[in-house]
Design a protein around this nucleic acid. Structure first.
Lengths: 369, 369
DNA sequence: CTGTTAGCGCTTTCAG
DNA sequence: CTGAAAGCGCTAACAG
């Protein structure tokens, strides 16, 4: 195909050639019932002959005030966003949902430089936005809001009441995993988490720091687990975080935690990716899981099940489908210029503990010590 | 945010309120050097006060004939497309490339129903398309072509000369893996591949069928391996394919192949996902890899390296970046109404064999038999 | 079933 | 530095 800006005609030019009105040609594409099948065929044939493939989507969108695309804002570079398998499942759920079937998904690549991304957000040609798991104070959310288009927030920020929300109850969701460790008799447990604050930081953090976290999801998961531990009289739980959730970071986090606290008998992770880091670190260092160390994850991605990780299943695909449905309704209401039925639903989807083979009671000797 | 269709003003309304011309307001956003900083500030402030977040992207695109988005056509349901980790790496590479940084990526969800998807393609508001790994006769490609926008083809179809192409030489790429198996002394080898034809089919296929395959990539990988095997006097290589490349399909494929041919000492897979299926099937059936069975993959996804799979590394991220660069140049040329430098580059990216721990010589007893 | 009218909101010459 | 004019290509009433 020549990339030459071939003039392929317009609705008007086709109409002129055939001696019919523009409306008729438009109807041939958009309202087939408004003209005779013969005429329609004739028009479509003439269009095809001239290389005209239907009304220009841009002009049509401008006229109808509707694009047929949902913007998706992921606030990490794509390679990191995709590292997190949960976000892929979410996207697949959104894309496969019947509500998204009639829409495309516009991924807005958001880098560390706020300015550029903000620009992209304010110029994206979309009908609405999905804001996926961003910090409470994230400027990208503000940029999306300023567009005045429908928005659905996924996972976080949690505290925003005037916007639709779809997510889980992270505080409660992680507790069964924490409880399982306690019930098995573990007393020296460490926590591995993804970043709790927007800024770059890797290392140990205190409970007080967790409480001020920008990122609701990680904060609640940690606090949910700590709540269980404290009720069992466990304090002094070391917490190590990593800004990124990719495999090298996870292995490194495991190393930092386990070297600093060799006496741990269990590690609770707030993401499956972190847990894989622990598993692989242990494998490399001849630490038997669950013999020497119990491990739990969070997310329930496919690989977690394949590797037998004990984790919390989060219905990511279903989250995607739910988001598609809500956003679609909002966009429709807006285009039809009427009040939506429910402008800001708050949907909390249930989670379940998935028992794998990575949790066992600590060895007797360790339990006594 | 009320989803009410709040009237947030237009460029014209702001201009009227301030008693300046529309051009001036437009310039405040698009050509800051064309007016005094004071005036610009004043305009921006007034806009902010009225909740006007800048020129409407739709109207602007219509006027400038440019959207700022690349359409990406993946011809599988998103959940399956994403199952294939290679496509995720590709997308990440595209999104992270500096060429895509100024563009969004519009994913066009393409289901099994050709009609709907074709519709979505002909109405997508984008500047060009990336067509990712589709069959030679795929109607989605035709739909994209009929838009008259720049297109870059990734991986396949290979035979199209008038469109830019970015991919690898699949025939040669897989040969080092095949050669490694032969050199280790394997004589009874099976092949596991993803579908070779667009239609739904799971099972054994013949070499003759492979030769008529719609899907160039899988065909070439199989033929490349067969070429090596035949040169070593090996014939009767069983080939089993699956329509989908997800984990359950892969395990099932492994079962079918190994149960039908229990004497195999090696399995060459045309994707890493297939190889993971073999590894997990073997684990479940106490077949030692590589002691009892050697396995090779193809793609070089991260998990392959983590699991020590011997595979062929394909630079998916780099493919994405290359595609972004080409498409960006094409779109620019088109918008500026000039001939592109190279309208249809054909880029073949080199691959490398990655040695893992899943290939060994067959046991002596087996070698003799 | 067909045509006329009236913009959608913006950018871009080109004068002033 | 500012403004007036001229559309980009289309669709939605509405009247025939």
């Amino acid at each position: 195909m020549a990339s030459r800006p071939v003039r392929r005609g317009t609705l008007a030019s086709i109409a002129a050639d055939l001696g019919v009105s523009r409306t008729t040609v438009s109807n041939a594409y958009n309202h087939p019932d408004q003209l005779s099948p013969e005429l329609r065929e004739k028009i479509l044939a003439a269009a095809a002959a001239r290389g005209y493939s239907g009304p220009d989507p841009m002009a049509r969108s401008m006229r109808t005030r509707r694009v047929g695309s949902f913007g998706v804002i992921l606030t990490e570079r794509l390679s990191f966003a995709f590292e997190d398998l949960a976000s892929i499942d979410f996207l697949a759920g959104l894309g496969d949902s019947s509500y998204a079937k009639n829409n495309t998904m516009t991924l807005v690549p958001v880098g560390p430089l706020d300015d550029e991304a903000t620009q992209l957000i304010s110029q994206a040609v979309v009908d609405g936005f999905v804001v996926y798991s961003v910090a409470a104070n994230d400027p990208h959310l503000d940029a999306a809001r300023s567009r005045g288009l429908p928005i659905v927030i996924v996972d976080q920020p949690y505290e925003i009441n005037d916007l639709p929300f779809v997510g889980i109850d992270d505080f409660s969701a992680i507790q069964p995993a924490a409880r399982l460790l306690v019930e098995q008799g573990h007393r020296r447990i460490g926590i591995l988490a993804k970043r709790t604050h927007r800024g770059q930081f890797d290392g140990h953090i205190t409970l007080a720091e967790v409480e001020t976290a920008d990122l609701h999801v990680q904060r609640q998961r940690i606090l949910g687990a700590m709540d269980v531990f404290e009720q069992s009289g466990l304090t002094d739980i070391p917490i190590v975080t990593r800004h990124f959730n990719d495999h090298p970071s996870a292995i490194d986090a495991a190393k930092e935690l386990l070297e600093a606290h060799p006496d741990l008998t269990a590690v609770l992770c707030t993401t499956d990716s972190m847990a894989f880091g622990v598993l692989d670190y242990c494998f490399a260092h001849n630490i038997d899981v669950p013999g020497d160390l119990s491990v739990t994850g969070f997310d329930g991605v496919e690989l977690a099940h394949l590797r037998g990780l004990t984790t919390v299943n989060q219905p990511n695909r279903r989250k995607g489908a739910t988001v598609g449905k809500i956003l679609d309704a909002l966009v429709n209401a807006r285009v039809e210029d009427k009040e939506p039925d429910n402008p800001a639903p708050h949907v909390v989807i249930p989670t379940t503990l998935s028992s794998g083979q990575t949790v066992a009671a600590p060895r007797a000797a360790e339990r006594l010590s």
